[in-house]
Design a protein around this nucleic acid. Structure first.
Lengths: 229, 229
DNA sequence: TCCATACTTCGATGATAGTGGAAATATTTA
DNA sequence: TAAATATTTCCACTATCATCGAAGTATGGA
C-alpha cells in the first residue's frame, strides 16, 4: 500500500506549529526576511532557519537573496491553495488575550489571501459584484458579464491584461473565516492591486490584515454599495 | 501570530505515514473495517485503532458500527478534496519491488478518487466527453451541453437526480498521476456508478484500482471512443 | 581592518508520539 | 456457555525531531 504519493511528507511540513505559523504568515503573498518570520513564529532565528531550509528543500517556499537578507515566500499559487484548503477545515484557535482578540477581528474583517482580498470584506465585495451583475457565478469559478466588462474598464482594470496571465483567470476561494466564497485568481488579484493603488486600503505590517482608509470607505460605498461601519 | 486557525492540527493528522496511508486508502469513497485498514497501512490493529480514534475525534473520518465490525470512511467531500489537494503537490514514492511496480501501474491506469473515476482512464474519459461536445469546460468546472443532456439520458444517467444532490454538481479534480483534470462531483460519481452498474468495470479489493471487463473494453470504445490496450 | 548584522550549521537535550505486547470488551457462531 | 473474531484500552519502550546555545559564514558599514 505504498503506490501512492507521499502525502505524509507534504503534510509533515505543515504539521509543525512553527512551520504552520510561517506558512500562514507567508499567505499574504509577500516575501519576508528570515528574522521576521522567526519572530512571527515565536522561535529563535536558528530554529526558523532550520524550518525554512526544510521547506525550501521540499519546494514549497522560495528564497531570494538580497544583500545580507534572505527573503522567503510561498513558492506558487498551488501551494497557497493547498494551505487555504487545509485552513478551511481547520479548527479555530482559542483566543487568550485582548490583543489577540482585536487582531483576530482585524484579520477576519479584511485580509489578503495570497494575493487577493479575503475575510468579511472579501466576501461582501464578491457578493456586491454578483448582486450588481458585474460577475456571474459558476460551479467553481466566477465569470465576467457584459456589464462587468464595462464596469472593470471604468474601474481601470484591463481585463485583456488580466486574462493573459499564466494562471487561472478567476476561481472561487473558500474563505475560512466566513465559510463562503470570495473572488480569487488573476481577477481577484487585479482587484486588490487596484484598490491598493487607489489608496482605498493599505496593508498592515506584521499581519495579513488590511486597513480601509477614509477614501476607501467612501469609495466602497459609492462604487460597490459596501458599507463599512 | 496566532490569530489563524490551526492548520498544524489538521496537517498533523495526515503527516503520519500510517494515517496518510489510511486516508489515501479511504479516498476510494468506501467504508473499510479497521482490520483491513491496519493491513493496508502495514501496522498492527492496535496501532490502526489508535490512529482511527484520533481521526474520528478530529472529525475527518466517520465510523459506522455493524455487528462486531466498525467501518471507517472519509467524513465528507471537503476532507477528500483537502487530501487530493495535498496529493497534487506531493512527491511520488520511490518504487522498490516488482509487485509495487505493477500495483502502481494499475492504480495509475484507473482508480477511484473518493467516489469518481480517476487515473489515466478517468482523464481519457473526461477528454472524450469534452471532444465529443458532451460536456464543456470552464475555469474550475465542467458543464453539460445540450448534446450532453441527450447523451446522459441515453446512457441512463438522470441529470435531474444528479443535480438535486446536496453537493457540487461537477468540478475539475486535479489528477496526481496524470497532472490533468478529470470529472468529479456528483456527475463524476453518477458516471462511475453507472459504469459499475453496467459491469463495464469493477472495483478491485484492497486497492483503489479499477479493472475493466471485456464488456467494458467494448463499451468504452463504442460509446466513448476510448481504446483500452 | 574591525565590528555589527543577518543568517546558517553543529551538537546536545528533552519532549512528544508512534509502536506493539498483553489484556479487556463486544459480538457472533457453535 | 464456550470459543473465535473484531476492535479497543493500557502501558512501557523507543525513535524522531524541534529547540536553542555556541560557533561559523557572509555582507555591509565605519
Amino acid at each position: 500500500m505504498n503506490v501512492i504519493p507521499n502525502a505524509a511528507k507534504v503534510a509533515a511540513l505543515v504539521s509543525e506549529p512553527s512551520r504552520a505559523a510561517i506558512l500562514t504568515a507567508l499567505l499574504d503573498g509577500r516575501f519576508h526576511p528570515a528574522s521576521e518570520l522567526a519572530f512571527m513564529a515565536g522561535v529563535k532565528p536558528q530554529t526558523a532557519s532550520f524550518h525554512l531550509a526544510k521547506m525550501v528543500d521540499a519546494n514549497v517556499i522560495a528564497v531570494e537573496k538580497h544583500g545580507r537578507h534572505r527573503y522567503y515566500g510561498i513558492r506558487d499559487e498551488e501551494v497557497a491553495r493547498v494551505m487555504e484548503s487545509i485552513l478551511s477545515i481547520a479548527p479555530p484557535v482559542k483566543i487568550k488575550s485582548l490583543k489577540q482578540a482585536s487582531e483576530d477581528r482585524a484579520v477576519r474583517f479584511a485580509r489578503t489571501c495570497y494575493d487577493h482580498l479575503a475575510g468579511n470584506l472579501g466576501v461582501k465585495l464578491t457578493e456586491s459584484l454578483l448582486n450588481s451583475g458585474v460577475i456571474g457565478e459558476e460551479e467553481n469559478a466566477f465569470t465576467v458579464t457584459k456589464k462587468g466588462e464595462e464596469f472593470f474598464e471604468a474601474f481601470q482594470i484591463d481585463l485583456k491584461v488580466v486574462r493573459k496571465k499564466r494562471r487561472s483567470f478567476s476561481h472561487k476561494c473558500l474563505d475560512w473565516s466566513e465559510r463562503r466564497h470570495h473572488l480569487a485568481g488573476a481577477l481577484g488579484n487585479a482587484l486588490l492591486e487596484r484598490l491598493l493603488e487607489l489608496n482605498w486600503m493599505e496593508r498592515l505590517p506584521k499581519t495579513r490584515a488590511i486597513k480601509i482608509t477614509a477614501d476607501g470607505k467612501k469609495g466602497l460605498k459609492e462604487t460597490f454599495s459596501v458599507e463599512i461601519e
